[in-house]
């Protein structure tokens, strides 16, 4: 555990050195928040739709971008780069699991940028968000639990897609597919409760809605405590299933790599 924490710290520290990137991050986060403020003001005004107010939507937007920027990662391009320059053999020699090493690396890399982007938006948002949108204790707890599951699930999905890099010449395009599905079935841009019925039904059977959408639903108190077991166990099931699959793929990948080297 401790060694992974060191990886996390190292990757966090290397991010902090980029001052101008931090400033650019703040400006960019504020600009996209501005767009969302005016969009939802125009759509909702002072009204309520599907039990959603302007203030709820601002929280939705803030939490979604927080969770996405915390969990984003392009594992495929990391593997691709280290296969091209040959450092992949070094990665495999490390006395730790490549998967958890990558996990620690991604979160260390993301956490600073996420804070930089979230704090200014929260400051502006706090003037616009009404206390009625805020959750009670039980929902906060459920939010925290499903956020952890969602973040791990996001990592699992990107890691799984990233492992495909072992079989592809180039893999910049993998993230396009992932983004498409995440946008459409994950409710990362537009809440799934505004979707036509059949589409939102399909989304229950895919992993994407359990990444950020369900955690945010808890925070906004849209999922009552007595039905909390459903999204939480769905996220757990997806986590278990995907990590079983990635183990298989990993073994196949290492075998293939060994063949290439021999």
């Amino acid at each position: 555990m401790k060694k992974y924490f060191v990886v996390f710290q190292k990757s966090l520290k290397s991010e902090i050195t980029y001052r101008s990137a931090a400033l650019a991050g703040i400006v960019s986060a504020l600009l996209s928040f501005l767009i969302q403020i005016f969009l939802w003001k125009a759509l909702l005004g002072a009204g309520v739709r599907q039990d959603t107010s302007f203030s709820d939507m601002l929280l939705y937007v803030i939490l979604n971008s927080f969770l996405l920027s915390l969990t984003k990662g392009n594992v495929a391009s990391v593997i691709e780069a280290s296969m091209i320059d040959g450092t992949i053999s070094m990665e495999l020699l490390r006395p730790m699991s490549f998967k958890y090493y990558t996990l620690a690396n991604i979160f260390g890399k993301n956490i600073y940028g996420t804070l930089i982007r979230t704090v200014p938006v929260l400051v502006i948002g706090s003037f616009l968000i009404s206390p009625a949108s805020l959750p009670d204790g039980a929902h906060i707890l459920l939010f925290v639990i499903s956020t952890v599951l969602g973040a791990l699930l996001m990592f699992e999905v990107t890691y799984l897609v990233g492992l495909l890099a072992f079989w592809l010449q180039r893999c910049w395009f993998l993230s396009w597919y992932l983004n498409g599905f995440l946008t459409f079935f994950g409710g990362t841009v537009i809440p799934l409760w505004f979707y036509p019925d059949f589409l939102s039904k399909i989304s229950y059977f895919l992993p994407f809605r359990y990444i950020t959408f369900e955690p945010v639903n808890f925070f906004l108190g849209k999922t009552p405590v007595h039905s909390a077991w459903l999204p939480i166990s769905a996220a757990l099931l997806w986590l278990l299933a995907l990590s079983a699959v990635d183990k298989l793929i990993w073994h196949a990948a290492v075998k293939k790599l060994a063949v290439n080297g021999g």
């Binding site: 597919y177 983004n179 498409g180 459409f184 841009v189």
Partner: peptide, 12 residues
């Protein structure tokens, strides 16, 4: 892949 991604954005 880009079609998938843009179609998703257009549709949402």
């Amino acid at each position: 892949g880009q079609w998938v991604s843009f179609a998703a954005t257009f549709a949402t």
